[in-house]
Amino acid sequence: MVDKLSKDAVEALSGLLFDGMTIMAGGFGLCGIPENLIAAIRETGVKDLTVVSNNCGVDGFGLGILLENRQIKKMISSYVGENKLFEQLYLSGELELEFNPQGTLAERIRAGGAGIPAFFTRTGVGTLVAEGKEVREFDGELYVMERGLVADLAIVKAWKADAEGNLIYRKTARNFNPMMATAGKATVAEVEEVVAIGALDKDNIHTPGIYVDRVLKGAKFEKRIERVTTRPRETAKEQA
């Protein structure tokens, strides 16, 4: 068995970064993002990145810090409305942007990791998303062809890992992480806890270790919440 544990973020990324590369970064909003690896990528100064991620963090956190440092050349995302700097850079032409419907983005990554070069989906037929793409009729309905997506590097966030690279995620922090783990030529997983081999329930491993090249136990997790929303205790039944 290969021990995939890295001692720190620098070691976890060593030899994997180069200018102009494509990086997939897991997470939905700020939930389930590899925050330690993103910070480490900022420190390296690697640039002209194409980043595949559902969102682009917020000003000052998550992928937002790579934007501030002008390391990102192009984003492939489904929603970027949380980030003022993003809008400025995009409107001024400093940043390229490719919008994918969220489900199409998820499926492109899943397909890429599974060796499927393209697939057809109803999503986006008759919209800007379908422009320039093949549209084909199946069983009387129109579908647009979308390409599988792979990356030079995938950085993902999981809850627990073992030294074999088996991963489990926690609650909605799973989101894009499992597919991205399969679609990176190299995949580095950042986790909150490393457990002994044998400690994970083998029937409930979300990402088998074959997809994971290196595992980093994150030095610290801020786990910021984008929109803290609560209910008052006395009207607990009202909100659902």
């Binding site: 389930g32 949380e82 809850w159 909605t172 929109r227 929303t229 659902a240």
Partner: peptide
């Protein structure tokens, strides 16, 4: 199976809805 918003102090950063609200 989304449940209601959490009580104050019981928010979980790993548990949000599509609007990025804690649930």
């Amino acid at each position: 199976g989304m449940g209601p918003f959490p009580y104050e102090g019981e928010e979980d950063a790993d548990l949000i809805n599509a609007g990025k609200q804690t649930i």
